[in-house]
Design a binder for these strands. Structure first.
Length: 569
DNA sequence: GGCTAGACTTGGAACAATGTTG
DNA sequence: CAACATTGTTCCAAGTCTAGCC
């Protein structure tokens, strides 16, 4: 039970209204603290039960009749036939292993065992047809279908929490399917089981009505697995995932007050780090000179987390999960120290199996220390064998309450954005403003600042499918404009200057598009950049807030809108 | 103390809606 | 107005981190 700070009486901190951000400052948002007094909601929506299509499946050239249960899983695979997953051996193997027990129930004499002899093409063709039929629906039909869906879900969309109406995020229970792990995930292709009401725990206020168990259409009367009244958590429902055994939660949407308060608390914590970062940096500089190996490793690990914005790198089980690493789990094979004096190259797969590959100038002390850490070790050995995330996070607590490794990422991202945006006057020329218009020129610069943060955090994406095409089109356009320019020059036209500008703008756009083809800008905007930095900047430069923050982000960040123009992270 | 269940944030891709263009 | 591109939303996987168990 957390006492409300700032004179709110001895009640738990849940008495704020819709505009909670005018009343609280984020400091009362505590893990394990009381989150609500009353909680009422409509429960969850289940995916429809499987309807068999009866299309044939062939094994070794012959049609094999499938039961509904068998066909359902075959159809899951058929739907993924053209994806990269379906071509991977691990996926095929896990899929067959999941499918076999179902097939076993009926196959006599002609067991379906070898993946290579399976032919899903008729089922795949059927799925294509269905897709085409859906596409051919008229506008009216589509609208009608959407209306029906919305009506069926309406009771789940909002929750009533301490008299506030709050949007629920993911009230749809995940449908069964073939697990799509990222990277080389050992479990890819396994069957993710269907979730039934009996698997679900509902969390609801003590006096509130328990949400009705929906009729699934299977003629059975279902019940919730459990109903609890836990006011120290923010989830409305949960169930256990059959792939990894971890818990999946139904929580509120990003624009809810709970997420907002938590967000505010997160950024305030990161700002708090500003006051302590000097001491922390001084301490790791000292630590690198400490003859004790453990002290040295801790110092260098913190240095990398701070300067390279690495994640802490918790332990992973490579039999059950993809082999990815973070700072403390780096292995010798990921570290290259032969790229020049005091140059560190790190090449490893991080979260989501996204590759980190960058060479950074580091301080000589860290370079020297790293050399000693990898000495006499095998490629598969840990670089930081004497430190682990728990120890690091305990150590951080000596400097600041609540400080943990991830705070450094938030801190570095937000402070970078703030610093970059402070250079706006110098970076956006009057000429550019005149040529492109103020808002366009300013937003181009904002996006560069945003891109710098994304690169700091190594937020990458696959090149969009349309990229090459789009670039080719732009090139073509540039060529035409250049030809036009030539004509204008020849004619001694007054439009030469305007055309030159137009071309350079176009070329800048092209360059920008190409340079950001592999950069994912959204993640830093949504999770790392203190929104108040952006809001204040918009106010200072008279940029409409919807330019950097489209509708959903605006809703997510309502708490940040009233910040003063001179706000500093 | 070490371990892990549990809760919550972070993450890219897939999908849907909307905007642009020919 | 269809085809395509872009932007916005949903999905659900994959991290972090600590309370509380032994």
């Amino acid at each position: 039970p957390s006492a409300k700070g700032g004179g709110g009486g001895d009640d738990a901190g849940t008495s704020y209204g819709d505009r909670w951000y005018e009343e609280v400052d984020g400091s009362e948002w505590k893990r394990g603290g009381v989150k609500w007094k009353t909680l009422e909601h409509g429960g969850v929506m289940f995916p429809p039960l499987y309807t068999p299509h009866g299309k044939p499946f062939y094994y070794d050239g012959a049609a094999v009749p499938l039961t509904a249960e068998q066909e359902e899983v075959a159809t899951m695979f058929a739907a993924m036939r053209e994806t990269d997953y379906a071509k991977k051996e691990t996926f095929q193997k896990n899929f067959m292993e999941a499918w076999r027990p179902l097939l076993k129930k009926t196959d006599e004499g002609k067991p379906v065992k070898k993946f290579d002899k399976c032919d899903f093409s008729a089922i795949a063709a059927h799925l294509e047809e269905e897709k085409a039929r859906k596409k051919e629906m008229t506008k009216e039909q589509k609208a009608e279908a959407k209306k029906e869906k919305d009506e069926a879900e309406a009771h789940c969309v909002f929750a009533l929490i301490d008299s506030r109406k709050e949007k629920v995020g993911n009230f749809r229970v995940e449908p069964p399917g073939l697990f799509r792990g990222r990277g080389e995930h050992p479990k890819m292709g396994k069957l993710k089981a269907r979730i039934w009401p009996e698997d679900i725990t509902i969390n609801v206020g003590e006096g509130a009505p328990v949400p009705a168990v929906p009729d699934l259409g299977d003629g059975k009367r279902h019940r919730w697995g459990d109903v609890v009244h836990d006011n120290t958590v923010t989830w409305l429902a949960k169930w256990m995932d059959s792939i990894n055994g971890d818990v999946k939660y139904v929580m509120l949407a990003a624009n809810s007050s709970w997420k907002g308060m938590s967000d505010l608390a997160k950024y305030e914590k990161a700002r708090e780090l500003k006051k302590h970062i000097g001491r922390i940096r001084a301490d790791y500089m000292k630590g690198m000179k400490n003859p004790d190996m453990e002290a040295q490793q801790k110092a260098v690990a913190v240095y990398l987390i701070d300067r390279l914005a690495l994640r802490v790198g918790n332990e992973k089980n490579t039999d059950e999960e993809a082999d990815t690493v973070g700072c403390t789990s780096l292995r010798v094979e990921h570290v290259f120290l032969d790229e020049g004096d005091n140059k560190l190259r790190l090449k490893f797969l991080g979260k989501d199996s996204i590759e980190y590959d960058a060479t950074t100038d580091i301080i000589p002390e860290a370079y020297k220390a790293l050399k000693s850490f990898v000495k006499k070790k095998k490629p598969g050995d840990q670089v930081f064998d004497q430190v682990n995330p728990t120890e690091l996070n305990d150590y951080f607590k000596h400097f600041m309450e609540g400080l943990s490794a991830k705070v450094f990422r938030t801190y570095n991202a937000s402070i970078t954005l703030d610093a970059e945006l402070r250079k706006t006057e110098q970076m956006v020329s009057a000429r550019q403003r005149a040529a492109e218009g103020d808002v366009v020129a300013l937003m181009a610069y904002y996006n560069i600042a945003n891109k710098n943060v994304a690169e700091l955090c190594n937020h990458q994406r696959a090149t969009p499918a349309s990229h090459a095409n789009a670039i080719a089109k732009m090139d073509e356009k540039i060529e035409t404009l250049k030809a036009e320019l030539k004509e204008l020059k020849k004619a001694g036209s007054g439009k030469v200057e305007a055309m030159t500008k137009r071309i350079s703008k176009m070329e800048a756009d092209r360059r920008n598009k190409d340079e950001t083809k592999n950069v994912s800008l959204g993640t830093s905007k949504i999770n790392y950049n203190d929104p108040r930095v952006t809001v204040a900047w918009c106010k200072r430069f008279e940029v409409p807030i919807h330019r950097p923050f489209p509708k959903t982000l605006l809703a997510k960040f309502t708490w940040a809108m009233s910040v003063e123009p001179d706000y500093e992270f």
